[in-house]
Each structure stands twice: as structure tokens, then as C-alpha cells.
Simulated scan of single mutants.
Amino acid sequence: MKKLFFITPIGIDGSQERRDSDFVMSTFLEPVAKKLDLRVLRADLLNDSNSIDDTIVQQIETSDIVLIDLTGLNSNVMFEFGIRFGLRKPFVVMTQNINELPLDVRNIRALEYTVTAPNIKNISDRLEAMITVALDNISTESSFSSKGEQMGQELALNAIQSGDFSVINNFIELANKLGIEPNNK
């Protein structure tokens, strides 16, 4: 079973950060992970005899995918995000407010969510799609045969994040007009 490590502001028991983290984990992440046959891990729920820092870094390095909640721009979360980003391994970013993300992070696809009256199905479906695409990149990242394939993946990720698939439909129409057949690998 593949591992998904959830990097998130955790806070102390009973804090708003902990309630939000628990809500995201139980409402969005665990159901999606179950569908995708992923084991979810979070730092405060790990039973390990190593130091907390060593355990977290080990999970960041060895997990198949990492979900990073940048809500509130918690310094620990940003540091851990930097480690995963530097490893060039699959990750998905989520936040309660995309506009609060720093400029150099804003260009990374992020799933925006809310803990107040969320559209659970929509967020869960988009999260599942983003995780699936990120995991698929493990096997295809080094085998891109053209810039077009990379652009197609970007197009798909944009559509998944925004929920607007009109650009993909327009692209398909253009490909059909040009007589371009899909390459089904």
C-alpha cells in the first residue's frame, strides 16, 4: 500500500488548527485515500521512537505522495514543503485561501477548500483527481516525449483545480479540426 503523508498545521489539542486538520483528514483525505488505496500518515499520529523532526523528514523523503496544507503559512509546514519540493517528488498543495500564498508558491496548483459549509463531494473529487495525477507523474515524469505532453498535463491540472473543463473541450475540438488523433499509451 502506498503512503500519503499529510503535512498540515496541527496545533495543540482543541486548537482551531487541530480541529481544521482533523476535519480535512476525516472529511476529505481519508475517504479519498481509501478509494485510492493509500495509507494516510500525519506527524502527530505516528508512533516512532526517533525525534519528531527525524520522523517527519523521513516521511517527507519516503512517502509516495505528500499532501501539504499551506493554510496560515505555518513556518514548519512551509519548511517541510520546501524539503518535499526540493526532492522533486509528487505532492499536492491545498489551502483555505489561495490569495494568501506567497508569489513564488502561487504558481503551483493548489486546491482551495473551506471548513465552513464545504462542498464535500466537489472538493473530494478534485482532491482525488489531483492525487491521481501527481502519482501518475511518478512513472511518467522522466518519460515525457514532448513539451506537448507536459502542456497537456498542465492543462488537465488547471482544469481539475478550477473545475472548468471548457479549455480542455476547446483543445479537443481544435485537435479534431486538425485531424490529430489521441495517443493512448
Score class of each variant (00 low, 15 high):
residue 14 G to C: 10
residue 169 N to H: 13
residue 164 D to K: 01
residue 19 R to A: 07
residue 185 K to L: 11
residue 57 V to Q: 04
residue 33 A to E: 10
residue 11 G to R: 13
residue 4 L to P: 01
residue 75 S to C: 02
residue 41 L to K: 08
residue 166 S to E: 06
residue 56 I to S: 04
residue 14 G to L: 04
residue 13 D to N: 12
residue 52 I to V: 15
residue 86 G to A: 10
residue 40 V to R: 05
residue 126 R to L: 06
residue 126 R to H: 07
residue 72 G to L: 10
residue 62 T to P: 13
residue 39 R to C: 15
residue 21 S to R: 03
residue 71 T to F: 02
residue 153 Q to M: 12
residue 96 Q to P: 09
residue 177 K to Y: 06
residue 30 E to C: 11
residue 13 D to H: 08
residue 89 K to M: 04
residue 20 D to C: 10
residue 66 V to H: 00
residue 23 F to Y: 12
residue 69 D to Y: 00
residue 44 D to G: 14
residue 162 S to D: 06
residue 178 L to I: 08
residue 66 V to C: 09
residue 42 R to P: 03
residue 166 S to T: 08
residue 120 I to L: 12
residue 112 E to L: 08
residue 27 T to E: 14
residue 128 E to Q: 10
residue 121 K to C: 07
residue 69 D to T: 03
residue 168 I to T: 02
residue 2 K to S: 15
residue 83 I to N: 02
residue 120 I to S: 13
residue 181 E to K: 14
residue 7 I to H: 01
residue 76 N to D: 04
residue 85 F to L: 04
residue 18 R to H: 12
residue 156 A to M: 11
residue 128 E to A: 09
residue 94 M to D: 01
residue 82 G to V: 02
residue 110 A to N: 07
residue 27 T to C: 08
residue 183 N to P: 03
residue 143 S to A: 07
residue 95 T to G: 02
residue 58 Q to D: 12
residue 38 L to V: 12
residue 113 Y to C: 05
residue 88 R to C: 09
residue 55 T to P: 01
residue 25 M to I: 09
residue 100 E to A: 07
residue 63 S to L: 01
residue 95 T to D: 03
residue 38 L to R: 05
residue 93 V to A: 02
residue 25 M to W: 07
residue 159 A to E: 07
residue 18 R to Q: 14
residue 57 V to G: 00
residue 125 D to S: 14
residue 88 R to S: 09
residue 61 E to H: 09
residue 86 G to D: 11
residue 103 L to N: 11
residue 77 V to I: 06
residue 129 A to H: 08
residue 106 R to W: 10
residue 32 V to Q: 09
residue 114 T to A: 15
residue 2 K to E: 13
residue 44 D to K: 09
residue 123 I to P: 04
residue 126 R to A: 04
residue 13 D to S: 14
residue 79 F to G: 01
residue 139 S to G: 10
residue 147 K to Y: 04
residue 110 A to G: 02
residue 148 G to T: 05
